[in-house]
């Protein structure tokens, strides 16, 4: 990396020297631009935060109500030390954004996490023209190809209906922020009641407050009719599906919704009854089309299959390199955080 690069890697995170700010830094800094409110991208301890307006509620809940936070709408730009900064939809979760940085005629975009498939619970990904695109690569292998959400939701609803008919609870483990709400938006709530874990509930409230329509949900403590338990679909984080909290849902059929469920070995290793392939990250074709659409001549690959993507893009004639970031703790191994 030459010193003239607009964004470089520092021990604290991705750094824009011209504007003296960081993007999703993992160590405390004076000014942080946050792509989205997932814990590995939005950390505590920074002096000032900049994020999308729809990230505000969740950031304040997760990091602290009193953080110094400035918000932007998509497409709205501000100047930080004469560097033009704007946020653009990343289609990952509510309020997720790509960061566009413009200085002296050069345009760099840091993607954060993104997906290109439509999602009823957040604004869809928009490609932004740039010279250099910093892209994630969580699912940067050609075996990762997602099906349309409608097909996956139909599978989940069928499974739920079958369980209800067999008089057993349906428990679906998924990441609480983003994935849970996306699933909620695809559920057929005529099948039965929806119960959510305490970790999912505050995020549902944040989504509803941001104007996203979700079906009615209950906490298990709010269930008055015991018969509802066996008719219900229960959404919870993966850690809860094997905890004592889950004991109350006796004989539950347990599923897991994640991009990692694409691989049979992963499905079997997890020991879940069902694995649903549903990811908030771009699949292989999605990564390719997103990169192409930016028209960037240079691509810097972060968390995921950096080496594979870098080599592939180089062979496609692009200038490609990688940044070693601390997003997602070894995405290839994690089935919980980066799903």
């Amino acid at each position: 990396m030459t010193t003239t690069d607009l964004i470089v890697l520092r021990a604290e995170g991705l750094y824009c020297a011209a504007g003296d700010f960081f993007i999703d830094p993992w160590r405390p800094v004076s000014r942080a631009v946050i792509t989205h409110a997932h814990a590995d991208h939005a950390r505590s301890g920074h002096s000032r935060y900049l994020a999308h307006v729809k990230s505000e509620g969740i950031l304040r809940t997760r990091i602290g109500a009193d953080i110094a936070l400035q918000t932007l709408e998509y497409g709205e730009s501000i100047s930080i030390n004469n560097v033009n900064v704007s946020l653009h939809p990343a289609g990952h979760v509510l309020g997720s954004a790509q960061v566009r940085v413009e200085n002296e005629g050069r345009v760099w975009v840091a993607s954060g996490d993104y997906k290109v498939a439509p999602d009823a619970t957040c604004v869809p990904f928009e490609p932004v023209r740039c010279d250099t695109f910093i892209t994630e690569s969580t699912f940067g292998l050609p075996v990762y190809r997602w099906r349309d959400d409608a097909e996956v939701f139909a599978e989940i609803n069928t499974w739920w209906a079958e369980n209800r008919d067999a008089n057993r609870p349906t428990m679906l483990a998924c990441y609480s922020f983003g994935k849970a709400q996306r699933i909620l938006s695809g559920l057929d709530s005529s099948i039965g009641p929806v119960i959510v874990h305490g970790a999912v509930d505050p995020l549902n409230r944040a989504y509803r407050a941001a104007g996203v329509a979700l079906p009615e949900t209950k906490l298990v403590s709010e269930v008055t009719d015991k018969a509802d338990i066996n008719r219900a679909l229960v959404l919870c984080p993966p850690s809860a599906s094997a905890s004592t909290w889950a004991n109350r849902f006796k004989n539950a059929s347990v599923g897991f919704a994640s991009g990692w469920m694409q691989l049979r070995g992963r499905r079997r290793m997890g020991g879940y009854d069902r694995g649903f392939v549903l990811s908030d990250h771009a699949d292989w074709p999605g990564l390719q089309s997103a990169i192409k659409a930016t028209h960037a001549s240079r691509v810097i690959v972060t968390h995921g299959y950096e080496a594979v993507m870098t080599r592939w893009l180089t062979e496609q004639g692009l200038e490609a390199g990688s940044f070693k970031t601390e997003y997602g703790d070894d995405a290839k191994e994690s089935t919980h955080d980066a799903s």
Partner: peptide, 11 residues
């Protein structure tokens, strides 16, 4: 896959 046709249409 045939559903790649789907993601291509997204593209």
């Amino acid at each position: 896959t045939h559903s790649d046709a789907g993601s291509l249409s997204l593209a």
